[in-house]
């Protein structure tokens, strides 16, 4: 790694003074797990890193209020994984944690760093999109709210300016919805996924009242599947077996609305096949899950 300047401001105001709207070599650092890999491999050579570790307390903590939970950007994966309230209200997040990295990385990696990294292979952004979460973005110009599905512009690219920070995530609590995340790995269980898919469904008896679906790893960026959701919305299902024809139509819609990218974990046509198969499995699993799952 090349040398750089590392600063540890104590307040957001100080942090903003150190960030630079025009210089991508000046970056915030949270847990550093993603940045360290990029710096070690020479993909990124910073001039200045601004550590968010001492910028308390606006970036920290998990707080429940008025039907939603606010998760501070500096919350570690381990803190989410071990939170009894997260387990009770957002069990899909607790379950997904077990598939991410390993305990040492989870002790350090943060929710904000994970969102801002914008690698399409990351799992958690897909879950946040399916849950309808929004990022609270702060800058010297004030605060704005960006739905997680609108956060990404492309491969490793967000809509954030270089002087903007993610302060927190707001996740609505929807006790009647059921959510599932499926990480499809083709080599070892701990490899990066060839496809990630998150599905969240609201059911009225045997009708799918609403659906939110997000895919990643097979696309340039985490992407919501609006057309596939439309196919599912209003469809009648039998809880025991969601109709094959319905799932085939949802799969066609999904393939039609996104551009699937090949990578070292699979060709585009293979990933298309994976998407059809796992969209169906994820919808079936979500439909069969208990409300609140």
């Amino acid at each position: 790694m090349t040398s750089f300047e590392l600063v540890e401001p104590r307040s957001l105001e100080e942090t903003f003074a150190l960030l630079d709207r025009d210089d991508p070599a000046v970056r915030p650092i949270a847990g550093g797990t993603a940045l360290m890999l990029m710096m070690k491999s020479g993909l990124f050579s910073p001039l200045r890193l601004i550590s968010l570790r001492r910028v308390e307390p606006r970036l920290a903590g998990i707080a429940f209020a008025d039907g939603s939970v606010r998760i501070g950007a500096m919350t570690t994966f381990a803190a989410l994984e071990h939170s009894p309230e997260i387990r009770r209200h957002l069990p899909v997040v607790t379950r997904t944690m077990r598939t991410l990295a390993n305990p040492r990385v989870r002790n350090v990696a943060t929710v904000g760093g994970n969102l801002a990294h914008a690698d399409t292979h990351l799992d958690l952004p897909l879950v946040w999109i399916a849950l309808g979460a929004q990022a609270v973005v702060v800058s010297p110009r004030g605060e704005r709210i960006v739905a997680v599905e609108d956060l990404y512009r492309g491969y490793y690219e967000t809509v954030l300016h270089h002087d903007e920070l993610i302060a927190a995530l707001h996740v609505p609590l929807r006790p009647t919805w059921r959510s599932v995340y499926v990480k499809v790995t083709t080599r070892t269980a701990h490899d990066w996924p060839a496809l990630g898919i998150a599905v969240s469904l609201a059911r009225d008896g045997s009708i799918i009242r609403d659906a939110r679906i997000a895919v990643g790893a097979a696309t340039k960026k985490a992407t919501r599947l609006i057309q596939a959701e439309t196919v599912l919305r209003g469809a009648a299902i039998d809880a025991a077996a969601v109709d094959d024809a319905l799932l085939a139509r949802a799969g066609d819609a999904a393939i039609g609305e996104i551009s699937i990218e090949a990578d070292s974990r699979g060709s585009a046509s293979y990933k298309q096949h994976l998407l059809r198969v796992y969209l169906g499995r994820a919808v079936r699993a979500a439909a069969a899950a208990e409300p609140g799952a």
Partner: peptide, 20 residues
Amino acid sequence: GLCGCCTAIVDGIAVSSCLF
């Protein structure tokens, strides 16, 4: 961060010291 050979405990928490 994959192999754990560099494991150190910082304030009671296990980290990969190669990424720290």
